[in-house]
Computed example of a mutant assay.
Amino acid sequence: MELSRNENKPVWVYIIFRKNHCSGHEKMTVNISFDGPVFWNRQVAYIYCCSCHFDEHEAPLMAILEKFEQRVERVCLVDKPVDYPFLPDTLFSYMARKMPKLQFIYLRELDLEKINRGTVVELANHKNLKKVIVHFCRNYEVLEDFRNLPQLLVVKGDIVGLKAMLGDFDFPPPSSTGSSNGTDSSGPSSIRTSSSPVPVSNRS
């Protein structure tokens, strides 16, 4: 897999949390898209984790993010339904400090209780961050304290134009069996690369 720091393409990262009723939920799966008609101008990483196994997934997740950190423009973290507060403050602080080109953070159906005020200030001072979208989340009050985060957008209903803004992330998790490039899917994580992990319709 070619996860290169030297690539010039911007990177969009989608982190989707699966539930324990899903087959293979305990495994971390990564799909990296490098080419194809909808990816000519960017690379897209789809990372499937499990909230109940996040302690195991956190280290490999951070290792992947570190390879892309200088090029990441958008990060989407999506869960359904809202679970317990498993995401640590360090993840959000890392995005604020280590992703200089980050423009959008989208958070859906997450419990954000662990985010602290210092991290909110770091996000507010990020030079390129345009929006932090909080969608159907819980315990996000720290983001609203003293209006310290001007980029914040709290949404409790549907967002018009969401896909145009963030891309297509509403698709079912991949099969937990098999992977490409010789990666053993029987381990704690599996990684596959593809040219187009989501359906593409070409309209004339």
Rank of each mutant, 00 (worst) to 15 (best):
H53T: 07
T90V: 13
H53R: 13
Y94L: 02
E122C: 11
I105H: 10
Q43W: 00
L110Y: 06
N116A: 07
V72H: 00
E58H: 13
Y106P: 02
A124M: 09
Y46D: 15
R108Y: 10
E122S: 11
R74Q: 12
L110S: 02
W40V: 15
M62D: 02
F104Q: 07
C50L: 05
V120I: 12
S93N: 14
L65G: 03
I115L: 13
N125H: 12
L61S: 09
Y94M: 01
C76F: 12
K101S: 01
F92Y: 12
D79E: 11
E56F: 08
R147T: 05
V44L: 05
I115F: 02
Y140G: 08
A63M: 10
C76E: 10
S51T: 11
R74I: 03
N139H: 15
L129R: 08
I64V: 12
L102M: 10
I115E: 09
I64H: 02
K114I: 02
L107K: 05
V78C: 10
V154D: 04
R117M: 12
N41P: 00
E58K: 14
V82Q: 10
L129A: 06
L107W: 08
L112V: 11
M95P: 03
R117P: 00
T119E: 08
E144I: 01
K131P: 01
K98S: 13
F136V: 03
K156Q: 13
D89F: 02
T90H: 12
F68Q: 14
L91P: 08
L77P: 02
H53M: 11
Y84E: 15
Y84T: 15
E56Y: 07
V75T: 09
L87E: 07
R138Q: 12
H135W: 07
R147I: 03
V78M: 05
D55W: 04
K127R: 13
A45K: 05
A96L: 03
K98M: 10
F136S: 13
V134E: 08
F86L: 07
K127D: 11
F54Q: 01
Q151N: 11
V160L: 14
E113G: 04
H135C: 08
C49L: 12
V120E: 02
R74G: 07
P88N: 09
I105C: 06
F68S: 09
D83M: 05
K130D: 12
V72T: 13
L152I: 09
Y84D: 14
S93K: 14
L143V: 09
D145S: 11
I105W: 03
Y94V: 03
V160G: 11
C137H: 06
R42C: 01
P85K: 10
K67W: 03
C49T: 09
H57L: 04
H126F: 03
L143G: 06
H126R: 06
L153E: 15
R138P: 00
M62Y: 04
I159S: 07
F39R: 04
A124K: 06
T90W: 07
R97T: 12
L107T: 06
C49W: 02
I47N: 02
R74M: 11
I105D: 03
T119H: 04
K67E: 14
R71A: 01
Y106G: 01
A45E: 12
F39G: 00
N116Q: 15
D79K: 04
F86C: 03
L65M: 14
N148L: 15
D83Q: 14
